[in-house]
Design a protein around this nucleic acid. Sequence first.
DNA 1: CACATTGGGTAGTGGCACTATCTATGTTAG
DNA 2: CTAACATAGATAGTGCCACTACCCAATGTG
Lengths: 211, 211
Amino acid sequence: MRISELSRRSAVPTATIKYYLREGLLPPGRATAATQAEYDESHLRRLRLVRALIGVRGLSVNDTREVLGAVAEHAGERHQVLGLVLGARPVEETVEEAETEAAAPEPGAAEVDALIGELGWEVSEYAPARAVLGETLETLRSLGAGLDRAALRGYAELAERTAVLDLDQLDPEADPLEQAERALLCTVLMEPALLALRRLAQENESARREG
Amino acid sequence: MRISELSRRSAVPTATIKYYLREGLLPPGRATAATQAEYDESHLRRLRLVRALIGVRGLSVNDTREVLGAVAEHAGERHQVLGLVLGARPVEETVEEAETEAAAPEPGAAEVDALIGELGWEVSEYAPARAVLGETLETLRSLGAGLDRAALRGYAELAERTAVLDLDQLDPEADPLEQAERALLCTVLMEPALLALRRLAQENESARREG
DNA sequence: CACATTGGGTAGTGGCACTATCTATGTTAG
DNA sequence: CTAACATAGATAGTGCCACTACCCAATGTG
């Protein structure tokens, strides 16, 4: 198909598709001439995925490119993909940066290390989620709403069970690339849904306690 | 204290503090003269809260104002606050809008209604989280990664247990306004931490299954 | 061959979160 | 008392981002 059909079928303006092509979110079509290129179903699929990450999940174009790149690069090493997929907001830490800044102890890093050790979790030293967690806990504490160890453990155990459900969504028999994409959907794109479920559950639980 | 001290103690530039004052994120200080105003500890506290919502959680200035407004307005009706605190990204739906657009069935709304009914949850018809959840589930399905009913229930039950932990963090004896602020911290500001925990748990669970 | 479409490129737009500067007024150290 | 500095309030500017509009030459289509 040509760009206009891709645009029609995805409801994304052609100008925006061109922008995504320039930004490397979408691979170029097969050029048939100087002013003609052919796109296929995989482009359509990718375009819808990009739109979902940007629109529903709220990722920036940059983060989207990085996430898609990481998925493509590490397809086949599933647990790498799941770990590397970058943190929601603060993308400040890459592996190299973490190495060079190793001397600068992140705020809250000690508590995070302790928690991970206590639970016996096996996670990379450089997982961006470590820094995000540490920073958030530290901020909560500085605002006088710090969690005690027991509560934090409670949340971690629920996260553990969530992760079991997450991994159950994946089919180890599927082809690596397809599975990597599905992992992306079930982790990153699922996030708004999980937060929404939590808000609904909070409202319900609050009503229940109210009497 | 004057603005320069507020700035120094919060590490926020005075120009930014003035911006927040204009935007109504920070209440004005007590004016002592035409070009002088006095700020107190409550301003400092509020400023740190605002910074945390914007910086750590990634809320926009607009969303931050709305969240703070909702908390102030409904302090004392805790479960209202917990429910009304608006959805992370798509802020498209207010109660009034939902009412006027009542005829336009949201995509995925039926599934959300069914889930909430099945679980016996008591949540407002107009909770923004309903729309967020519906839209996300619908998008996942359209990308071929839809969840089956059982998996969705599993996530919802974990959300339920998370909500129990959340509510346990609140002290019903505390004064309403203070409690409302704590609720805000434990729900909204906690979100990045929960997502980070989930990513860490995923990496761990994936490693566990791998070998 | 007339004419709409396309790829590719460049420039412009609107929104956002600040940030810089200006003026009139206050405070304060010497 | 005055010179140096700080402040409130207002306005304009900045840099970034996600598009969006426009232009051109080359192409496909009736």
